[in-house]
Design a protein around this nucleic acid. Structure first.
Lengths: 198, 198, 198, 198
DNA sequence: GATGAATGAGGCTTCATTCAT
DNA sequence: GATGAATGAAGCCTCATTCAT
């Protein structure tokens, strides 16, 4: 069962996002996903190791595309501040544009057990890399202080954005998310900029 | 079945923290918790509505004590910066002091379904109140700008701290957590302080 | 799940013999056995580790009773020849008296995998012991030659009886089984008696 | 789908013996056998009706060759005793020479359901014929008594040999099997010879 | 209040077989 | 003849919860 990214692979991924967003992970039976994808139950297992693997693959797939697009857009930005803003805006934009995906990544994906959580973390590393790169550049250019604790900086950055998105999802996405990109950027950018050595 | 906070209530809460930290939420059967607590399975249901209620109650209990202590300590602080630092330090301190509790709150508690997540969020509101209070005071005193988006500010603050703790837990708590209170405070404080209107 | 030989334990054993004899092991769903036994599906698992364990326990139970009764009857016999005859007759008698049990032991029990087969063999050792005892006595008394290969003698004895019973079951138990005890005894007894050293 | 005994037919038979001996019947998926045989899954169904048919055909094939060879060798023997010895020795010899086949015939083949068991019995009839022929001749020549219950005699003979082989397989074939041909012949020959009328 | 034996719903996954190419 | 992707039926077992004692 090598990961054959055929047409059905994507059919199943898309069906999974839709079904899980609607029913929640624990109430999304494999048969339900298969039906929505228009394939037989057994076919799922030609493309995925097991039910959890659907979740991981789904996240890998979406994250892969997002990171790729982000890299391209980030390369076009001149300043650190613009890069940070761009990353945040793209993050919010993608999830605002796909409510189902937002529900899945912010709520359902986290109901998974530790083993799965670790796999998800592996996938996240590519995204962490984007943040790390901005921070590194900022320090090199003297925008951020040399004494900056980079690891904490990255965790803080990710945690802040993620929490804002999660709150938006839990409030049933009733307000505009992308317009929070500006205040988020402001706080994170100045937070990193002014940090003083301990 | 009013919440009878007898001796067994706490026995069961403590057993739950220990059992869930060791076995993970999905492998912590009610019977396992009962055995560890030294009571019969059925007795659990004299003190808790159902299995999820153990989790919520556990969180309520621990959070209640924490918020109470925090309020007292915060009242002793003079400046906004000190209050912020104190809150962060107490947060990190409490979880560093109780690894089992840290595992449960950062990892296991989140594997719960949406309904439970909402209940947990209710409990969190008391904690959010502490942050909100600091932010409000900061704005009143002119330490933070009037244009500050307070809701986003609170979400960002909580998200940053929470993500730092979660990373620490997922790295098997192999480094010192409390010493991250300083960089965290720095970044959050300056982030809130320098935010410019959009 | 200690083996609690309560009333339900036997209820389930008896239901299993009946259901398996009628439907075959692989078509005897646990739910079918539970229904016949008048208990809930889950109750089965309070008394048995898994489905296979029902089979092993069933065999242990029946074999235990049989070996016990046989020992008593064998002690009453004077000669080796009488002991041998008694054992064979009791063996055939028990199975002729319980057709369901005969089907289960001769056909269904053997469809099990190797792991289970080994467990069954363990149970059989008690029965092997009865044969060994007769052979040993026969050799001591000089009825059987000292040069007798005792292990092969026991295997041959068991194999001969077992094959006769299996054929009877596969012929739908359409003829009298117990009356074959005499020819079986004759052949086995003289076979052991006259064996010459190689 | 007439039995096309092409090259692939034998390739598949051999692969089946090897795969089943290694993995056990219930863990020998058609796809695994196909892979070992170097053909596609679907190809199996050009040569065999279904999975069970592989087993039956395998047994037919091996037994056919064995019976043929045995007939020839038996024809060369002068006495009944020699014939009996020859048959037993060939039986043991063949299985000692092919451990995989021994595992399959003594253990795995028996895990099949009743329907298959009946088909296997059909194949066995050719072998039973060899034993019957020796017994008939023995009675005609006066070596065995006229009162001999021939059917029981044959069952006993087969059961004895079969049980000895099965024990050898279950003991991981750790001792010499062929040398048991002599004691087996002794016991069976004398058993048949001295049987007295009931 | 405390017990713990009994309940029974519910779903992931395997794998023999088919059939369009 | 040969392929192998797709099918879909079918069942063991867990475990939160109850209730008679």
């Amino acid at each position: 069962m090598a990961k054959k990214k055929g047409q059905k692979f994507n059919q199943i991924i898309d069906a999974a996002v839709s079904v899980i967003a609607e029913n929640g992970y624990h109430n999304s039976q494999v048969s339900k996903i298969a039906k929505k994808a228009g394939v037989a139950d057994g076919t799922i297992y030609l493309y995925f190791k097991n039910k959890e693997d659907i979740l991981v693959s789904l996240f890998e797939e979406k994250m892969g595309v997002f990171v790729q697009k982000s890299k391209e857009r980030l390369a076009e930005q001149e300043t650190i501040e613009d890069k940070l803003y761009t990353l945040i805006e793209m993050h919010l934009c993608q999830l605002e544009a796909d409510h189902d995906l937002a529900i899945v990544t912010q709520l359902e994906l986290r109901q998974s057990n530790i083993a799965l959580r670790n796999e998800i973390n592996e996938v996240l590393k590519a995204y962490y890399g984007l943040i790390d790169h901005i921070i590194d550049e900022g320090v090199e250019q003297g925008v951020f202080p040399h004494s900056l604790n980079k690891r904490v900086a990255r965790q803080m950055t990710f945690g802040a954005i993620d929490e804002v998105v999660t709150n938006w999802v839990m409030k049933d996405m009733r307000y505009d998310l992308v317009e929070l990109a500006h205040p988020l950027k402001e706080m994170i950018f100045h937070g990193l900029k002014q940090s003083k050595t301990g």
